[in-house]
């Protein structure tokens, strides 16, 4: 563990292979994703940080496979895109206003036309059909990034 800019951060850099592996473990051991129907979350989605895209293939509320640089051979239902800086804010232990949650961040992009936030893409109906499970899965990026506060 080290302290950078006042925040406790995981030594693993955001978006590396090792980071995604830690994240996968965090998601796959999360109690909230096992209850309230969140184990029905079966939609693949991608996370794009700057130019780097990673596909998360979901099965029953768990990450089955992390696929870097998905191709025409892969399928997904929706995704989230943003600058690396926006994602770095998103995963901070105490994230700044508006990049602290996906709907908040998307709203500032889509409705208020601001830069520096995240944007949802893809099938909006599927996003809302899986809203809490998807939102929780993204939120666990913050938990993984900060070692669950350990």
């Amino acid at each position: 563990m080290q302290h950078i800019g006042g925040d406790t951060v995981n030594e693993t850099e955001l978006g590396t292979h090792e980071w995604w592996e830690t994240y996968k473990e965090t998601v796959n051991s999360d109690p909230e994703l096992e209850v309230r129907g969140h184990d029905k979350f079966n939609e693949n989605f991608y996370v794009q940080m700057g130019d780097e895209r990673v596909l998360l293939e979901m099965a029953d509320g768990k990450i089955d496979t992390v696929v870097p640089n998905p191709t025409l051979n892969h399928r997904w239902t929706f995704g989230v895109e943003g600058d690396r800086e926006a994602w770095e804010e998103f995963v901070q232990e105490t994230p700044p206003p508006f990049n602290h949650e996906i709907i908040a961040s998307h709203y500032r992009t889509a409705v208020r036309n601001e830069d520096g936030h995240l944007q949802l893409t893809g099938d909006n109906k599927k996003i809302f059909q899986n809203l809490r499970a998807f939102q929780r899965t993204l939120e666990l990026m913050r938990v993984a990034h900060n070692n669950g506060g350990a």
Binding site: T94, P97, H100, E101, A104, N124, K125, L131, Q135
Partner: peptide, 25 residues
């Protein structure tokens, strides 16, 4: 529209669409 749509679990969605309206503190 999704906040009142029969294909969406609006019980949970009407709540968690507001989750990020709250501060993490």
């Amino acid at each position: 529209d999704w906040l009142d749509h029969p294909h969406v679990n609006t019980t949970e969605v009407n709540a968690y669409s507001c989750w990020g309206l709250m501060a993490p503190q």
